[in-house]
Nucleic acid binder design. Structure first.
Length: 854
RNA sequence: GGGCGAUUAGCUCAGUUGGCUAGAGCGCUGCCUUCACACGGCAGAGGUCACUGGUUCGAGUCCAGUAUCGCCCACCA
């Protein structure tokens, strides 16, 4: 046992064991295993260009705890790591990091080199050059992330890594898209779309969030065409007045019932619009009657569609008002010249500028009634954007998700019910989201760094692009980029020419690719032998805020392709909260970085903190828990050293041997109970309970049991009694090393290596069959109670625990005294008792007489 | 407005199917330099389980309602 250091410490264990696990392939997936022997994890790919924060450390640890347990039960664990590197966050980071912007009209510059310092002002570069920068920077970021994961002790098989922008991922993503398209599950449509004017891209319903913003009600008078007065409406968007196509009130609203079907003229522009009824109009909002514009919000879209209204589009994709020719078709006006004069002052302005201008115009025209009323109201934003979302009409790709199809929606809800949720109430969030969908899943983005749509369009001889009958590549040609690759039967010179072809310019949204993480990681259509071993996956771990995006979209893809759930279980982790119980956010600039935290407390201590967070429960960031974790790690080192010293050189060969002393059997019986609970808890993903029970017994083991048997183990009661203690100590230590291995992988493997061969992480999970089942656990309690009273007497006398107790009289029930008799020798030894006697009583009490102080 | 959680010691949290005087850790107080561990050990104090009713022999636990907090969704004229 020369390997045991004199002063064990958890510091420095990480580097040694990370290296050893890597070189020995401790966590390598055994791809010869059959599906029933495999445990597969659909690991969340972190956003490579974001930053890891303590929340990641928290939730990824939870998965690793379960994974390590499963591995020890004998499963071949498939635990890959992915990186989500495509999409807007990467683009934005590259723009800032290098000082560049992407201009797709520029040609590729093969001599372009990455700048040392960011360009100032930002330099426009071609899309291929831009993508190269994205690939380079995300690869660098991923290495830094991986270093954190290794340090944390995630038992990932690093031979199985994927990037969502890698050629294989693009191929998988395009292949699935083509299949969705062929089956009619994907389609393109020209329609009003929620649009971010900052990023100039469409966004999906799931990526929208509300933010409270100041606004103002403006009361505007419309002249009735019949000359019978005016109708006053209230709006927060007066700048959309040129786009007004109707007024609307509730069908039951008696104030407006007589007016339905009649017409009013828009102020300034003189457009005649009809007053229409619709039940979405609220009598108690504003003046009870609203103007419908194309388009101010999603309600406008509903009204426009359901009332069959015409369209007057004034908003450009950049958030400015586009030029309009009043008097032309669709832009009829009672006074086209006046309308034109008014509008010409607005064209080219951004929306907020246009708002100020039109309010002045309305004031001068006498159409504005009263002062604007300031309010604070929720406004829809793209979750990554900083300008309010608008609605523009554009051609976009969609995947059906039940938003327009009740049958599909029911099927997807049924899938959600088949999934085993941990905790189970998270399933409700999925269901209510699917239930509330109001449109299909918009997957196209007008961006640059992402998976291109593998689609071209024919251009007719007179130059018209035919979107209805796209040119598609075969699956064997994938991956392709239609902006550089050429469809069969054409050559590059025909690009964008009459009679030639044009590329679909869009890329897929990040979720359209990350919804395929099981397929990408599991080698779908790329590595059939792997795929059949891992799919459907055993578990999808993730946070609850992306149930509506990542989880739901993954279910959709597997539903369409395989008619199955992509996994059996979904484990939903909570958030990390500040000590003041607010959600910890990056913007708050939290000082604690994951790597700093790991270095300060040690990886095992940080994992201990994470393991104390119940599944699905938001947890406060609490450094004191990490200190406790460090103490546990330290205790395991010291206790292991001491126990191995007591048990002697042959400790490993004693594990599981015959145990004769009643209190030894009692400890092992308690241990059997903990093994049972820990195993059942882990099977139910409740790592926190497994830890709690294991830890509680471990402390009793060191505080009470080891103290009780110390003397006997040294030989005070003869060889046979000593051997029973040695066997018990060795057996219990073996159990604790394995039970704690998922939580404290570094100290567990370190202490295991002192006396065992191989890694504890490939050792067998403990079973109750390894332990004698006939011990009486209360024996340990009785002995512990007596010992505690003796200690208390010494503490109250302010004397050392080493002080001898001259007489100890234990009063207790006959039943408990009988138990005490079985462990008397150990109690006498541990308590340094000279004379122990007992008397029967109803209540437990102990009378101690101490030797006089020196 | 709809849905889902939560409310237990100063703090962070356990408390499985209702069962004796409600638990842990941290913090606090006191003691012990004890031959594994001072990055320690031993012991102690500390709670009318948010509130109001109800079911029950018995409620922290089940039911109804109230309050407060958090999250998700809807509302955006």
């Amino acid at each position: 046992m020369s390997r045991i250091p004199d002063k064990p410490t958890p510091d420095g264990l990480e580097e040694r064991w990370i290296e050893r696990w890597e070189s020995e392939g401790t966590y390598r997936f055994d791809r010869t295993a059959t599906r029933d022997q495999v445990y597969s994890v659909d690991t969340p790919p972190p956003t490579a260009s974001g930053s890891l924060h303590v929340g990641h450390v928290f939730s990824y640890t939870h998965t690793d705890l379960v994974v390590r347990y499963q591995r020890m039960t004998g499963k071949a664990v498939f635990y890959p790591m992915g990186w989500d590197d495509n999409g807007l966050p990467s683009e934005r980071r590259v723009q800032n990091y290098y000082g560049v912007t992407c201009d797709p009209s520029l040609p590729y510059d093969p001599d372009f080199e990455r700048p040392e310092e960011p360009f100032d002002p930002p330099k426009p570069i071609s899309r291929p050059n831009f993508v190269e920068l994205c690939l380079h920077l995300t690869a660098e970021d991923e290495e830094a992330f991986a270093a954190v994961w290794r340090r944390l002790g995630l038992s990932v098989d690093w031979n199985h890594q994927y990037r969502t922008i890698a050629p294989e991922a693009i191929r998988t993503s395009q292949r699935m898209f083509l299949r969705n398209l062929a089956r009619g599950e994907a389609y393109a449509s020209e329609a009003p779309t929620i649009w971010d004017v900052g990023f100039q891209t469409a966004v999906a319903q799931a990526e929208i969030e509300d933010r409270e913003k100041p606004g103002a009600y403006h009361r505007i008078a419309f002249d009735r065409v019949d000359g019978e007065g005016v109708i006053e409406i209230e709006t927060t968007r007066p700048e959309l007045l040129p786009a007004c196509v109707a007024l609307v009130a509730h069908p039951d609203d008696e104030r407006f019932q007589p007016l339905f079907g009649s017409k009013v003229r828009t102020p300034l522009f003189g457009a005649e619009v009809e007053i229409r009824p619709h039940e979405l109009a609220s009598p108690d909002k504003g003046s009870g009657i609203a103007m419908i514009c194309t388009f101010g919000d999603t309600t406008d879209v509903v009204w426009w569609r359901e009332l069959g209204l015409s369209i007057r589009a004034i908003l450009g994709r950049d958030g400015r008002l586009v030029p309009v020719e009043w008097g032309s078709a669709g832009w009829e006006s009672a006074d086209p010249d006046a309308a034109q004069r008014a509008y010409d002052e607005l064209a080219g302005l951004y929306l907020n500028q246009a708002k100020r201008t039109i309010v002045e115009q309305l004031g001068e025209a006498g159409a504005l009634r009263g002062e604007p009323r300031e309010i604070v109201h929720p406004v829809k934003f793209f979750e990554k954007g900083d300008r309010p979302l608008e609605i523009v009409t554009s051609r976009q790709w969609y995947i059906r998700n039940g938003g327009h199809d009740a049958d599909l929606r029911d099927e997807l809800i049924a899938r959600g019910r088949d999934l085993v949720w941990h905790p189970d109430y998270m399933g409700k969030r999925y269901e209510s989201w699917v239930d509330g969908l109001n449109g299909d899943w918009l997957i196209s983005r007008q961006r640059f760094f992402g998976v291109p749509f593998p689609v071209w369009y024919r251009i007719s001889a007179d130059g018209v692009v035919d979107h209805d009958d796209p040119l598609l590549p075969g699956e064997d040609q994938l991956p392709i980029d239609p902006t550089t690759d050429v469809p069969d039967g054409y050559d590059e010179s025909q690009r964008n020419q009459p009679g030639g072809f044009a590329a679909d310019p869009d890329v897929m949204d990040t979720w359209a690719t990350s919804s395929l993480t099981p397929q990408i990681a599991g080698g779908w259509e790329e590595d059939p032998e792997l795929w059949e071993r891992v799919f459907p996956f055993d578990v999808r771990p993730q946070a609850h805020d992306i149930i509506r995006t990542w989880l739901f979209s993954t279910v959709i893809r597997a539903h369409f392709e395989d008619g199955a759930l992509p996994w059996r279980n979904a484990t939903i982790s909570g958030f990390i909260l500040d000590p003041d119980r607010k959600k910890m956010s990056k913007s708050k600039g939290n000082v604690m970085t994951p790597m700093g935290m790991l270095e300060q407390y040690g990886s095992d201590a940080v994992r201990y903190w994470a393991a104390n967070g119940r599944p699905g429960v938001d947890t406060a960031f609490d450094e004191t828990v990490m200190k406790v974790g460090r103490r546990l790690a330290m205790k395991l080192l010291n206790a292991s050293k001491f126990v191995l010293n007591l048990a002697g050189d042959g400790a490993a060969s004693l594990v599981g041997d015959e145990v004769t002393e009643p209190i030894d059997r009692a400890l092992l019986a308690e241990l059997a109970g903990v093994v049972d609970v820990a195993t059942r808890s882990f099977d139910d993903f409740d790592y926190a309970r497994a830890l709690e029970r294991t830890e509680a017994l471990f402390w009793r083991f060191t505080d009470d049991y080891v103290e009780l048997v110390k003397g006997r183990a040294y030989g005070a009661a003869g060889d046979d009694a000593a051997r029973s203690a040695h066997v018990t100590l060795a057996t219990a230590l073996s159990m604790f090393h394995r039970l704690l291995a998922p939580f404290l992988p570094f100290v567990a493997d370190e202490t295991w290596s002192w006396w065992q061969d191989g890694s504890v992480h490939n050792a067998a999970w403990p079973t109750v069959q390894e332990l004698p089942g006939d011990g009486d656990p209360t024996l340990l309690t009785v002995a512990g109670d007596a010992l505690r009273e003796v200690r208390r007497a010494k503490t109250e006398a302010k004397t050392s625990l080493r002080t001898e107790a001259e007489t100890v009289v234990v009063a207790d029930t006959a039943e408990r005294l009988a138990l005490l008799a079985q462990v008397e020798a150990d109690v006498i030894d541990a308590g340094k008792i000279l004379s122990l006697s007992t008397q029967t009583a109803d209540e437990f009490s102990v009378d101690v007489t101490l030797a006089p102080k020196d």
